[in-house]
Design a protein around this nucleic acid. Structure first.
Lengths: 223, 223
DNA sequence: GTCTATAGCAGGATAGAC
DNA sequence: GTCTATCCTGCTATAGAC
C-alpha cells in the first residue's frame, strides 16, 4: 500500500526515509517468518502463534494484516514465486552463449547443471513439496505456482531451443515438446529423489554426471 | 498374524473356515477405511473418528488394533505398496514381447502407455502425493515407498533394457541410467502435472502422443 | 494500533460400562 | 473385546485492556 513515494504525517521520519512504514515492516517480518515456518514444517503444523512469535509481533497484528491463515499462505507462496525469474534469465543466458557446434554439448551441460542446481536447491524443492502437499486445499495456488515456476522454466528452455534451431545447431520441430524432454531428462529423477527423501544430499558431482548423460541423450535425438 | 493355516480354539468355526477371525476382519475394514480417507484427505485432515466411523467400528477398536495414528498410517502405506508388483510384471511382459527390430518402436510405445497409465492412475498418483507430503514426518516410510514403487519400476525397466541389449535391438551400456532416461522421458512431465493439479484429467490420447515423442527420443539415443 | 486473555472447537488418546 | 463418554491439548480467531 504505502511506499517511498509519499510522506504521510502519521509516520515518523525514520520510517519515511527508509521507505517503509512500521506496519509495512511488520508485514514483511510476518511474511518472512511465515515463509520460513511453512516451508520447514508444512501448513497444518505451523500455527499462527508460532508465526507471530517468530516475527516478534503479536498474533492480533498478524490478523490485522492478513485475513486468515489461508490468505497468509497464499501471499507467501505467490510472493516467493516471483523470485523464480532469476532462473529463467540464467537459462536464457546459457542458450545465448552457445554459438558454434563445438560449444553445443558443453554449453547444454552447463545449462543442465545450473538448471538442476537451481531447482534442487533445498528451499526451492521444499517449496515445491509444500505446494504439492497443499494442492488439494489450494488448487488455484498450485496451478499458479506450476505456471510461474516450472512452467516459466519450460518456456525459457523452449525459447532457447528455438534459438539453437535457428542457429542450425539442433533440429527442433516442436520447441515446447523438446523442452519437456530436455527438462525431465535433466531434472525428473533428481526431483523425484529429493521429493521422497529430503535428507538426500545430491552432490554437484552427481548433478554433473547426471547432466552429462541427459545431454548426450538429448543431443542424439535432436542433433 | 492368524491365517488359514491354523485352527485356533478361541475362534468360532465360521471364522476359522473363512480364514479370518472377526478381529482380523475388522482390522482389514479399518485399514481399508484408512486407505480411502488418508488418500482422499491427507494425513492431518483425516481424523481417527472418521476412520472408525467409515470402518463401522468404534474408535477404541481402532486403538486396540493400532498403537496410534502414525502406526496406522505406516501399515496402510506399506500394505498398499505391495500391490505395486503388478506394474512390474506388466513391464517385464512388455519387454519380453519385443523380439524383432520391427517391433521395437511400437513395443516400447505400448510399454510407455501402460507404464504411464499405471503410474498416473488417480489412486496411485494420490498415494504418491500423500507419501511425498508426509516425507518430513515419515522419512523412513517415504524412502521405503520410493524403493518399493518407483524403484521397482526403474529396476524392471533396467532389466528389460538389458534384455533388449542382449537381443541386439538397443545399445545399452548402463541399464539403470538408461532406465532413468526412459522412465522420466515418459513419466516426468505427466507426473509433475498431476502432482500440481489433481483435477487435471490426462486422457489416453495425450498419454499416447506423449509416449510417442518420448520413445522417439529414447530410440534415437540408444539404437 | 498493539498486546493479553479467552472463547470456541476439533482431534488424539483413554477410562470404565457391558 | 467392543462401545460410550470423556479428558486434555492445541489451534484459529476475536474481544477487550492500554
Amino acid at each position: 500500500m504505502s511506499g517511498p513515494e509519499a510522506l504521510r504525517p502519521d509516520e515518523d521520519l525514520a520510517s519515511a526515509i527508509s521507505g517503509a512504514s512500521r506496519t509495512d515492516a511488520k508485514r514483511l517480518a510476518i511474511i518472512d517468518a511465515a515463509t520460513q515456518l511453512f516451508i520447514a514444517r508444512g501448513y497444518d503444523r505451523t500455527s499462527m502463534d508460532e508465526i507471530a512469535a517468530s516475527a516478534q509481533v503479536s498474533k492480533q497484528t498478524v490478523y490485522k494484516q492478513f485475513q486468515d491463515k489461508p490468505s497468509l499462505f497464499r501471499e507467501m507462496v505467490l510472493g516467493i514465486t516471483q523470485r523464480a525469474e532469476g532462473i529463467v534469465e540464467a537459462i536464457s543466458a546459457h542458450f545465448e552463449g552457445i554459438d558454434r557446434a563445438e560449444e553445443l554439448e558443453e554449453g547444454l551441460r552447463g545449462l543442465a547443471r545450473s538448471y538442476a542446481g537451481a531447482v534442487l536447491a533445498p528451499p526451492v524443492i521444499r517449496l515445491r513439496r509444500l505446494v504439492i502437499s497443499e494442492a488439494d486445499r489450494f488448487p488455484d495456488l498450485a496451478r499458479a505456482y506450476y505456471v510461474r515456476a516450472p512452467g516459466c522454466g519450460l518456456d525459457a528452455v523452449a525459447d532457447g531451443l528455438r534459438l539453437l534451431d535457428r542457429r542450425s545447431l539442433l533440429h527442433v520441430d516442436d520447441p515446447p515438446v523438446a523442452a519437456g524432454h530436455f527438462s525431465y531428462l535433466v531434472l525428473g529423477q533428481l526431483i523425484d529423489r529429493k521429493l521422497f527423501d529430503p535428507s538426500d544430499q545430491i552432490t554437484d558431482t552427481e548433478i554433473a554426471e547426471h547432466s552429462h548423460g541427459a545431454v548426450r541423450v538429448f543431443i542424439a535425438a535432436y542433433r
